[in-house]
Computed example of a mutant assay.
Amino acid sequence: MSFVGGYTIRNNLGMRYKWSELVRYRMKERGVTRERIANMLGKTPGAVGHWLNGRREPSLTEIASIFQILGLSNVVLHSDGRVSLPDDYDPSVLTKDALTARQKALVELFAFFPEDEQEKMLKELREKKDQMDQLIEKWLKARKDAS
């Protein structure tokens, strides 16, 4: 699979990409900043920037933590610093405007509710997301403190 213009994927089985390419793409897709990743890892945004631009290399643990923060699973990290995705990985998952069947169903269902109910649901989902972010931050801090 290969990145085309940073937003589209075409199927080229067996291709490997730099871990940082996948991370930068996913950050853009999810609106996650270097500052946020740095904060969650207890590092500086500059350090994360150096990693993403290839000027310095993070540890495997740090790369794995970044993958976890960005929700990247089933990614194989090779010893040369490149990653590959499973052969059965759905390319539409990494396409900028693609929605999964579950996401489409959620959007269709959401549209049936009155606007005030939609706002209430969005507020609740944002709160749950914030709670999850805080939980991940605590987990990463505890993991860092233990090592």
Rank of each mutant, 00 (worst) to 15 (best):
T61H: 11
T61K: 01
E62A: 08
I63G: 07
I63P: 01
A64S: 06
S65L: 05
I66N: 03
I66S: 03
I66V: 15
F67M: 12
G71I: 05
L72T: 09
N74R: 14
N74K: 08
V75I: 15
V75C: 14
V75K: 02
V76L: 00
S79W: 14
S79I: 08
S79T: 14
G81W: 09
V83D: 10
D87I: 12
D87F: 09
D87R: 07
D88Q: 06
Y89M: 11
P91S: 00
P91W: 04
S92V: 01
S92I: 02
L94G: 13
K96N: 11
D97I: 08
D97G: 09
A98S: 09
A98C: 02
L99N: 09
T100Y: 05
T100R: 04
A101I: 15
A105D: 09
A105M: 11
L106D: 09
L106C: 02
L106I: 05
V107Q: 05
E108L: 07
E108A: 14
F110V: 12
A111W: 07
F112K: 12
F113G: 06
P114H: 01
E115V: 14
D116F: 02
D116Y: 07
D116L: 04
Q118P: 11
E119Q: 04
K120R: 14
K120N: 06
M121K: 08
M121G: 01
L122F: 13
L122W: 00
E124N: 02
E124K: 12
L125F: 14
L125C: 07
R126I: 11
K128M: 14
K128N: 06
D130I: 07
D130S: 08
Q131L: 12
